[in-house]
């Protein structure tokens, strides 16, 4: 692990390898455990009420519905790793969703070019955030609050009324309605993360998240790293916006708004520390799926949908409190 804050002088006894891995990844392990538990609870409720286990249809729709959130949460994770926070997620998804609904059409080549341009637009939005945070030396929370307003305005300018259309072929490529093939994209994202984690950029991201001053003293280009982090995040939000449009087969310049808050929820549930320096894409993906599973469970528990956010909020607090407790226990037991 780079920038391991627990490394000590040689005089200390080294911890066993297993305990080290457990201690470093307690957030991720907890997220995976909660996800597993929520899937078991959901499957149990489903089996009792429907007389069978959740099949292809349920799994596929869950995966397809979670795709935008999972991608947004990975982007948010990269920003949060640098001790930042990105509130403009909703605005970027609104904008790219609107662009996708209007411009996706025609030949395969045309659609590929349009998709790439939309991802570039997302990256440009992220770049603006990054420049303001990095070079402008402004606080991330206020910068992204302001750019959220700007991107939301642009999205409504692009698509004043819900509408547009996404070609059926495009939809079935990204979010196949018969098989959860979209999982392949998440696997790709996780692979990309492993590459990032081992690259110089990844090491720098974690370094400035753990201790910015020490990282700068060791020669990490903090400003450049932050700018790149926000840019990559913006590109990921754009992909989320495209998936959202593909899933809905149409566009709406306001459906993305909710992703600002849910991406933060998913990141927190995924064991990413809001204080920076700890987190992973797999954790963020787990967090996103937990968020969807909670909604599914509440539905099958016949909870009045009006109370939904009450239970989500309560669950969020409980998960964070217990996560903190378990993390403390693991770390104190070294």
């Amino acid at each position: 692990m780079p920038a391991d804050p627990t490394s000590r002088p040689a005089a200390h006894r080294r911890r066993p390898r297993a305990a080290h891995i457990l201690g470093q990844n307690s957030g991720l392990i907890l997220a995976a455990a909660i996800l597993l538990l929520s899937i078991i609870v959901f499957a149990g409720m489903f089996a009792v009420q429907q007389g069978r286990l959740p099949g292809d249809f349920e799994i596929t729709s869950t995966v397809n519905n979670t795709m935008p959130l999972a991608l947004a949460a990975i982007g948010q994770t990269i920003v949060v790793l640098t001790r930042g926070i990105d509130l403009s997620v909703g605005g970027v998804i609104d904008l790219t969703n609107a662009l996708a609904a209007i411009f996706l059409a025609g030949s395969i080549l045309h659609m590929i070019v349009v998709s790439l341009l939309i991802v570039l637009a997302g990256a440009a939005a992220g770049l603006i955030n990054g420049l303001l945070v990095g070079l402008g030396r402004l606080q991330p929370i206020v910068v992204t609050l302001a750019t959220l307003s700007i991107f939301q305005g642009l999205a409504i300018r692009v698509l004043p009324q819900p509408g547009g259309a996404v070609p059926a072929g495009y939809t079935s490529f990204l979010v196949n309605t018969n098989r959860p093939t979209a999982l392949v994209f998440l696997a790709l994202a996780a692979l990309g993360w492993m590459g990032l984690r081992r690259s110089r950029l990844g090491v720098n991201l974690f370094a400035i998240g753990n201790d910015p001053q020490a990282a700068i003293a060791l020669g990490v280009k903090a400003v450049r790293t932050r700018i790149v982090a926000y840019t990559i995040a913006g590109a990921l939000y754009a992909v989320a916006g495209i998936f959202l449009a593909a899933n809905a087969t149409a566009g709406d310049a306001t459906t993305g708004d909710g992703y600002t808050l849910t991406s933060i929820v998913a990141v927190v549930l995924g064991g990413v520390s809001l204080f920076g320096g700890r987190g992973s894409a797999v954790g963020a993906i787990c967090g996103a799926f937990i968020t969807t599973m909670i909604v599914n469970i509440l539905f099958f528990a016949h909870i009045d949908p009006l109370y939904q956010s009450f239970y989500e909020g309560l669950f969020l607090v409980i998960a964070v409190v217990f996560g903190g407790l378990i993390g403390r226990l693991v770390r104190s037991g070294r």
Binding site: V268, F275, L306, Y307, S309, F310, Y311, E312, G313, V317
Partner: peptide
């Protein structure tokens, strides 16, 4: 609990109660 998470969750809790 970090302030962002706690107050965000509280917003959801009150929203759910108010709506419900």
């Amino acid at each position: 609990v970090p302030a962002v998470v706690m107050t965000l969750a509280m917003n959801g809790i009150i929203e759910g109660l108010a709506l419900g």
